[in-house]
Amino acid sequence: MNTPEKKPVEVVLVDDHRMFRSGVRAELGGAVSIVGEAPDVDTAIAVIRDVRPPVVLLDVHLPGGNGNGGIDVIHGCKGLETADGQPVRFLALSVSDAAEDVIAVIRAGARGYVTKTISATDLTRAIQRVADGDAVFSPRLAGFVLDAFGAAAGEVAQVDEELDRLSAREREVMRLIARGYQYKEVAKELFISVKTVETHVSSVLRKLQLSSRHELTAWAMGRRLL
């Protein structure tokens, strides 16, 4: 029995540089479907409200609006849903890796933040994950968010029954995955194979009774383990 081919994720691309938008479109090819573009805050809000895509690929610094760039776009599209009732989700794509930019955009409601050094393959994967409801960050950027939100919550990491279920290696893998590392990056960091990483992640999710990397990040954040 043939499995139906998964349709490319529809994306609205928001960036004030036309050449960059053209480059992204060319690099992604048919892996995603770019259904709209915008160069500024006001145009972006109009296009997103009209198209209602599953994912908006959003630059952080944009002209127009109230001067807050991508944050104004997110605020202007609060509560929007796609045709099938899913929320319109935002993935920041920026040249900036400054902590204040990352934290501000995530606080505004973006589901992830990646830098413009990302490869086309990884960007495609990030778009798909955001469409599926996961949180996605370039490696190391997740630490900014976890530190900021953990500090705001005033919580302290504690040894608990759930954490005690994990082996020392599973805890190492869990921390890196929750920070946004890809499997191959975890493997390189810990000097293990990608297959071993996959095995550990499956074990961690099973032991903690979680179903996704997003839930794992939230779990780790709540305990300030990262």
Rank of each mutant, 00 (worst) to 15 (best):
G112W: 05
S94K: 08
P139R: 13
R140P: 00
A135W: 03
V114S: 08
S96T: 08
G150Q: 09
I103K: 12
D122F: 11
A120N: 06
R89S: 12
G76S: 09
S96W: 02
G109I: 04
F90E: 03
G133Q: 12
G70R: 03
A92E: 01
G154T: 03
G67R: 08
I74G: 04
G85R: 10
R89C: 02
I118T: 15
S94N: 10
K116E: 11
G79E: 11
D134L: 10
G133A: 09
C77L: 13
P87I: 09
A110Y: 01
C77A: 07
G109R: 06
V130I: 15
Q128W: 02
G109L: 05
G70F: 05
A142T: 03
A99W: 00
K78F: 02
V136R: 03
E100S: 13
F137T: 01
R129F: 02
D147M: 12
E81T: 15
P139W: 05
R107D: 15
A99C: 00
A126C: 02
T117Y: 14
L93G: 00
R111S: 13
G109F: 06
L93Q: 03
G112L: 14
P87S: 14
P139H: 08
I106K: 09
L141V: 13
A108V: 04
I74S: 03
V95P: 00
Y113C: 12
K78R: 15
T121H: 10
L123P: 06
I74V: 15
I118G: 10
V102E: 07
S94V: 11
Q86F: 01
A110F: 02
A110Q: 03
V145Y: 10
L80P: 07
I71E: 13
F90M: 03
A142Y: 04
Q86G: 06
T82E: 05
I74H: 03
T121S: 12
